[in-house]
Amino acid sequence: MLIAQVTDLHLQADPAHPNLARLVRVLEHLLSLQARPDLLVLSGDLADDGAPESYRHLQAALARWPGPVRLALGNHDSRAHFLDVFGAAHADGGFVQGRTALDGLQVIVLDSLEEGRHGGAFCEARAQWLCQVVQDSAGAPLLVFLHHPPVDVGLPWIDPGPRQAWIARLDAALQGANLAGICSGHVHLGGVFSWFGRRVATCPSSSSDLSLAFAPMGATQPDGRPLVEQGEPAFALHRWDGSGLASIFGRCPQRVLAHWTAATQPMVAAMLDEKSTPPGCA
């Protein structure tokens, strides 16, 4: 089973803003894949301005997606405006959260938005909801999506830092879960991190990248370092084989350099044949 993750769309009310065209490129690329993803998860900062028009642009763009879609909210989103457009089907207990059973895997979407705050949040009500989900799962594997990663990634202005109560609450709610992984956005970069022995994967953004500047920062001492840059629109693919999760980070290609044709057949056939032929030193 293949799950596509797109994050940090940062759509704006103006339909001419380039982030909408970048999202459409990602969706078209994902639909062209062989094989096509079974599920699409958008993991927050769907809108940059939280405007109802931004969510309507997203709704129209998603109309071309033929399969199921799950959505999470990020710090740039408006929960009320999102629900006005997408409706209560994406909500449970007053938050944009839910679970979907897919091929033996429970896909859980969490709401880490606290409006007015850049960083994450996970209140007691959300923690109780997740505790119930873990209990009801009866040991089935869980794959969790949320916007904010509960772990430092090395970028000082993005990292949540230690002693965040919401992270401790999330940790406690996941105790006893058969966790396949945690997939987040917010960082605009692809990476894999360890959090109390759990695997956390951050997804690259369809809109922009954060710059790789790991040096410490002083809040009152701007040093001119780059913060945000832009490459081709990006996404993640998470492949579940029934026993484990593999994650690949991809970008929309500028051009394809090789195809599976008669010209590449000898090389590809040899590589496929090697799967059944052990090396001489085996």
Rank of each mutant, 00 (worst) to 15 (best):
H10K: 09
L11Q: 05
D14T: 06
P18V: 03
A21Q: 13
V24M: 10
V24C: 12
R25I: 00
V26P: 11
L27H: 10
L33Q: 15
L40W: 00
D45P: 03
D45K: 05
D48V: 00
A60E: 13
A63M: 13
A63T: 12
R64S: 15
A72E: 02
D77S: 00
L83F: 00
A88R: 15
G94D: 04
R99P: 00
R99G: 10
L102T: 00
G104V: 06
L105D: 08
L105M: 11
Q106G: 13
I108D: 02
L110E: 01
D111N: 02
E114Y: 03
E115A: 14
G116T: 00
H118L: 05
H118D: 04
A121P: 02
D136C: 00
A138R: 15
L142V: 01
F145W: 09
P149F: 02
P149K: 09
V153I: 15
P162D: 09
A168L: 13
L170F: 02
Q175I: 07
A177M: 09
L179Y: 07
G181I: 03
G185V: 02
V187H: 05
H188V: 05
H188I: 02
G190M: 03
V192C: 15
S194M: 08
W195M: 10
R198Y: 09
V200A: 11
V200F: 04
T202K: 03
S206N: 03
S206Y: 05
F214Y: 15
M217L: 14
D223W: 03
R225Q: 12
V228N: 09
H238T: 07
G242M: 13
S243W: 09
S243T: 11
G244R: 15
A246L: 12
R255W: 10
V256P: 04
H259R: 14
T261K: 10
T261S: 15
Q265H: 12
P266D: 08
V268T: 12
A270G: 11
K275P: 00
P278N: 09
P279Q: 12
C281M: 11
